[in-house]
Write a protein that binds this DNA or RNA. Structure first.
Length: 800
RNA sequence: GGGGCCGUGGUCUAGCUGGUCAUGACGCUGCCCUUACAAGGCAGAGGCCGGGAGUUCGAACCUCCCCGGCCCCACCA
């Protein structure tokens, strides 16, 4: 690294990163005797670009990683990418302009893997390196690599052994677009335009019965009609039948609490399956199941002339026919919220299919306990976990009728359908290519098997990240790094990733996978959540190419943990100013050390530290204490603001100015003490800022500090600890007084339009002068350019 | 409907285990080319801390109610 006249982050940051890369600064090299600190880094989904929310939250976890490293922990901080399942498939389909369904399965899988390896992952990781995350990129995993497939499949077999895995044919949430079953957590609300259609059923005697529905295409699947038991309009119909319009089949009319009198006409049709209530009714009243919709979102034979139509086509056609038969009495437009698949926005259907599930609903009570045992930062985030557990209604559907994912390690006997699981030693397997571990079905002795073609839900693998992390280090270390120390993540995936990781670890190992949870907030723009569809995204790449990574990180450190932060470019500009300021302050300090010919680590003079320097060093001590405490509870923003305030207001505005005279022309001891103070404070401050702005601080370390310090990188140096000073209870008061007087003198000069160098005659109350003492008073005289200090009421008189 | 977070000068924010003049930044005004720094320095103006009630000697900070914004979950015939 070469010294530069002006520090340009855009030029220097790549140099610093190159330095880290070639020195393997962040390589995981456990030192015996040191405690471990392991981090369950979120593997970002490979989906195009990093976005600023990523940068925000990865920067925050990196502050902690760097801090812990400096505190002497063996920090295990690997990097992973999550890259299988529907998001990856959709991305590959988009950039390669293919359709998974239109090509041979294996070709598509190969294409996905190649695209990831050759294009996506390498460029994707660059974004993370560019913001300066200090992961050990040698410890790299992908959720689809061989190791992950083996671990994931092995875990499935483990669940099977523990009786937690089951296969069942039942109605479950289904995405007709992606043509796969999905889990509760993959749904989201979307407000859609729809129409409330009032249509007419009839009793066998011809008496009209009006209902209102948004989904007339489900008429062929209608199995009953309900009214509320207290609804006197319909009570007389109990036990009677109704004839479904167009389709003509008869269904019972029944009372049920779940029908609300004030919705629509108070009479509702139940179709298998329009929504969750329909499923409850079907079960409760033991109704038949009529399937009207196919897995690809078309009408079945039940729909007769509408067979083969897509859902919305059938809806239109049926409405038209109802109209022509005068069975449609009213249409009201309405906007309502419907459940859609978060990956593609398609409305969810409930479709009967054979799926694998992880049984977990029986564990709700335990889930609350698990959440209780974790340390939540900030603590209120735990409510979200509890709230989610409370609302759980489904076991976890983990099979996906997709292609690019971890295969189920299962075959079925062709004769008796008995599932046969792979042998642990053969993992990972692909049942479509590999043979089952036995020749004959253990149940019926048949010798032919059908491979399972479903793949695992991508969360089924990413919920195993603690194990993936473990697999990257020597097994002799496992006991020391597991449970992991920290799970950092954003609050949007508490219900996905956090919940599922805890569940899996408890199911497999009976313990929580990590101890601390650090939840970061979102980045908003003018109070709005950023999203591509709104078009209000800020690209972190644009920020780093304009202001650099340190500025971006510094900005990310200004909001407190868990809080959303509104992005404003001016805040990044502020960050850059800090970097420049630090650079210049360091120049000043080292220029003077140079001039004075200091060669070894600056040390206090033999006759003791000058009282003024002691005041600032004592203040430094409390800054160290505060910053350390803040960091220990993951309050990085507080740590940063304490250090930064000290740097700007006290070190630069006051200390540098106060000691200048002693540095330039003081006696030997006076100068030595000042140089010692300057060096010590600058060093400790740089170290405490290093987690936030790692590039500029590393630059300073290499260019300046390295002449005196042995440690090869500031990020491997030891976090500052409090220095012993002569006890002085009044140090804070003295410091306040000193800086207060300085400020008042500056004010007087400014108000009188004088230069700050303007000589004055300063008058001070005797108690203040006494408090400060003669040595500090000398410094005060120097910094205020006072020719003389008199006793009396405070005043500033200009000499000329 | 359930849960949670937030509401502080024009803007973004700190403080919220109650007690000196309520942080800091940007913006605004004025002064200063002071041997670290003019993409700077120094200083200044600007706030009934969303509204109301209560607890207290004392509340931005605790309690209750209301208003507003956001997020998660549920419901959605």
């Amino acid at each position: 690294m070469q010294p530069v006249q002006k520090y340009d982050p855009l030029q220097q940051e790549p140099v610093v990163q190159q330095f880290w890369e070639s020195n393997q600064t962040f390589k995981f090299t456990p030192v015996a005797g040191r405690p471990f600190y392991s981090i369950d880094v979120p593997p970002p989904t490979v989906s195009g670009d990093m976005h600023i929310g990523h940068a925000f939250s990865y920067a925050q976890m990196d502050f902690v990683a760097r801090y812990k490293r400096m505190r002497g922990f063996n920090v295990l901080y690997p990097f992973g990418t999550d890259n299988n399942g529907i998001p990856t498939e959709r991305l590959v389909e988009k950039i390669k302009k293919v359709k998974a369904r239109d090509m041979p399965r294996q070709d598509f899988i190969d294409l996905c893997q190649q695209t990831l390896d050759r294009e996506l992952i390498p460029t994707y990781i660059q974004d993370w390196k560019r913001i300066g995350v200090s992961c050990d990129f040698n410890l790299l995993y992908s959720t689809i690599d061989e190791r992950s497939r083996r671990i994931s499949q092995s875990a499935i077999i483990d669940l099977h052994r523990k009786g937690r895995l089951f296969r069942s044919e039942a109605p479950s949430m289904w995405c007709p677009e992606c043509q796969t079953g999905i889990s509760q957590v993959e749904c989201e609300d979307k407000e859609l335009q729809s129409t409330f259609n009032h249509l007419v059923f009839k009793t066998p005697e011809g008496q009209p019965l009006e209902i209102a529905t948004t989904r007339p295409e489900l008429l062929p699947a209608c199995v009953a009609m309900f009214y509320h038991p207290s609804d006197s309009r319909y009570r007389h119909l109990n036990g009677r039948k109704a004839v479904v319009p167009i389709f003509g089949h008869e269904v019972p009319i029944l009372p049920d609490e779940r029908a609300s009198p004030d919705k629509g006409t108070g009479l509702v049709m139940c179709c298998t399956f329009g929504d969750q209530t329909d499923m409850e009714w079907q079960k409760a009243h033991n109704l038949p199941i009529r399937e009207a919709i196919t897995p690809d979102g078309r009408m079945t034979e039940l729909a007769r002339k509408y067979k083969g139509m897509k859902i919305h086509e059938a809806r239109e056609a049926i409405i038209a026919d109802l109209k022509s038969q005068h069975l449609l009495t009213k249409q009201e437009p309405l906007t309502h919220f419907v459940n859609v698949h978060e990956r593609c926005g398609t409305e969810i259907e409930f479709i009967k299919s054979k799926q694998w599930f992880i049984r977990m609903l029986d564990l709700k009570e335990d889930m609350f306990k698990w959440g209780e045992q974790l340390h939540w930062y900030p603590d209120f985030m735990k409510h979200r976990y509890d709230n989610w557990v409370n609302g759980l209604q489904w076991d976890w559907l983990i099979s996906r009728q997709r292609y690019f994912g971890v295969p189920f390690p299962i075959w079925y006997c062709e004769k008796c359908s008995e599932p046969v699981f792979a042998d642990e030693k053969d993992l990972p397997v692909d049942p479509l290519k590999d043979k089952p571990p036995m020749d004959k079905c253990p149940k019926c002795g048949h010798d032919k098997f059908t491979p399972e073609s479903d793949v695992l839900d991508t969360w089924a693998t990413s919920s195993l990240t603690p194990r993936l992390v473990l697999s990257l280090v020597d097994s002799s270390l496992h006991d020391q790094v597991f449970p992991l120390s920290l799970r950092p993540q954003a609050h949007d995936i508490i219900t996905f990733w956090l919940f599922k990781t805890v569940l899996r670890s408890q199911l497999h190992h009976g313990v929580n996978p990590f101890r601390d949870i650090m939840i970061s907030g979102f980045v908003t723009l003018k109070g709005q959540k950023m999203s591509k569809s709104k078009g209000n995204v800020v690209r972190p790449q644009d920020v780093t190419t304009k202001y650099g990574a340190d500025a971006l990180r510094y900005w990310a450190s200004t909001s407190k943990l868990g809080k959303d932060l509104d992005y404003q470019e001016k805040d990044v500009v502020t960050a850059r100013k800090f970097i420049t300021k630090l650079f210049n302050a360091a120049n000043f300090v080292f220029m003077n050390l140079d001039k004075a010919g200091v060669s070894g680590v600056p040390s206090p003079p033999a006759d003791g530290i000058h009282p003024t320097d002691a005041l600032f060093l004592s203040r430094l001590n409390s800054v160290i204490t505060e910053a350390t405490q803040a960091f220990d509870s993951y309050e990085y923003s507080q740590a940063k603001s304490v250090v930064e305030n000290f740097f700007w207001k006290e070190f630069c505005d006051n200390y540098l100015e106060i000691v200048k005279t002693r540095v330039y022309s003081g006696g030997e001891s006076e100068q030595k003490s000042a140089l010692f103070g300057l060096y010590t404070i600058l060093k400790y401050m740089s170290q405490m800022m290093a987690p936030f702005t790692p590039h500029i601080t590393e630059y300073l370390w290499q260019i300046h500090f390295r002449k005196f310090e042995k440690t090869e990188s500031i990020h491997l140096s030891e976090w500052p600890t409090v220095r012993e000073l002569p006890a002085d209870d009044r140090a804070p008061t003295k410091l306040e007084t000193l800086m207060g007087i300085t400020a008042r003198v500056r004010q007087a000069k400014t108000q009188n339009q004088k230069s700050l160098k303007e000589p004055i005659i300063l008058t001070l109350p005797a108690d203040q002068a006494d408090l400060l003492g003669p040595d500090v008073l000398e410094d005060l005289k120097a910094v205020t350019a006072a020719r003389e200090v008199k006793n009396g009421e405070f005043s500033v008189v200009f000499a000329e």
